[in-house]
Amino acid sequence: MAEPQPKPRELPYVAAITEGVRTVMQEQPDAFVAGEDVAEAGGVYGYYNGILKEFGPDRVFDTPISEEGIVGLGVGAAATGCRPIIDVMFMDFMGECMDEIANQLAKMRYMFGGRATLPVTILSMAGAGASLAAQHSQSLEAWICHLPGLKVVMACTPYDAKGLIISAARDDNPVIVVLNKMSLAMMGPVPEESYTVPIGEANLVRSGSNYTIISYGRMVHEALAAATQLEKLGIDAEVIDLRSLQPLDSDAIVASVKKTHRAMIVHEAVRFGGFGGEITAQIQELAFDYLDAPVARVGAPFSPVPFSPVLEATYVPNADRIVAEAKQQLGL
């Protein structure tokens, strides 16, 4: 008689990040971790706990609060043979290092005629919901997706967090892994061994027949909750987690829309000028004749992230807003 299958091991998102970093450090002798509070303190959210102890101060070290210096360190080290893991504590701080990200890291290979390789992995924490207000809560992926030369991925589960970090570190391009602070305690299955989540492939997290919700990051979970609610309205929604924004899996989006004929994009970032606009444009370019309704977009209102829990709850999209938007879109 066959042994009963053991329940897959579950880890919280935060520990999956740690395991991803540890795996990279074990597999790649040229990898190091640099960032604010990453060594002695184990990171502000603790996801570097134990990394210093295991790999030592030559490979894991605290930096001054100098984001431009930290990313520049990564650029110079990567161009000369290292594989840096750079921590930008909050995505909001990218303003401090945007020259090194946008003008140096993203472009160096191209400007040098393909004669530079920059295997830099940047980990950064995004997302609202913790009353951290306007400068510690943003989702700024649209800034960096607009920069040719960067890859951008967002992890919404513990499994994806570990797998995307390992993929990012194996990639010979700069990859920014956007993590979500509200997901840190989320439990999910995470294999103990090393594995990758492919960069550039969307994940169909729920199959459906007549509606497509395209999302990424923490909003995937709200989209799934909304899909359950939508069932009662006779809507059988498919949910796509893009996982990778750059490169974007346009094929997966188009294939789904051709099947379901109706689409919505959900992201936590400000709706105006957000990444959803790009997806919407691609759908109308590549699947216009298949659409039975205008493409809907759900995102944050056009304001900074507020502090008050009441205001913040109004600000961040959720399942109810997704359902309301779908009803309006479909005239239900």
Binding site: G72, G76, G81, Q104
Partner: peptide, 13 residues
């Protein structure tokens, strides 16, 4: 910053 990173690389390697 890039030169500083390359210097780090020299030390690291």
């Amino acid at each position: 910053p890039i030169a500083m990173g390359a210097a780090f690389s020299c030390k690291f390697r």
